[in-house]
Amino acid sequence: MQTIICQPAASPALFSAEGVVGIIFLVTIALMVTGALIAVHAQRLVRAVAGLAVCFTGLAGIYYYLLSPFVAMMQLLIYVGAVSIVIVLGVMLAFPEEAAPADERRTTDVIKHRSALAGPVAASIAGLMFAALSVLGLKTEWQVFPREGEGDMHAIGITLLTTHGMVFELISIVLVMAIIGALVLAQRGRN
């Protein structure tokens, strides 16, 4: 077990400041997992979107623990504030009801057969992927490189606009194209 990387490696006492930080981390993980479960399992799509927002809030807490408070803020702003609201708007405009068993098209044999198989097959595939990725993450001998920068907001801004300036501009173009494309697509077919 010497390959597991912990920095620092010592475990704090329960009632010290670091112990409280550890407890809050566990609560954050619980929040994220609960949100993800709701997002995947809820029958009504509005509840799934609310679960997604809860999951992303917990994830922002985890990003904060990863020493990236700027990314955590952006996570709250972009995902919880923008993407979830956009999906809620989509649900509102295209009001799909996922739980509609009375529909006679869904009771034909093929589709019923598929729905009966879909749950266990999906669960086993996802469980296998989770187990494989976790074992991979736990068993790999990670190589730690010595630190060179600080990784604060100042460094992020400089890296964003000098080293990765080209990608930054490309992403700006992609966002403009996405805005125009969304407008054109959503307007097509309207009388």
Partner: peptide, 15 residues
């Protein structure tokens, strides 16, 4: 956070 030499690059990629 744990491995990279320059901790700004991963945050930029996440953005």
């Amino acid at each position: 956070r744990f491995l990279a030499p320059d901790p700004a690059i991963g945050q930029v990629f996440a953005l």
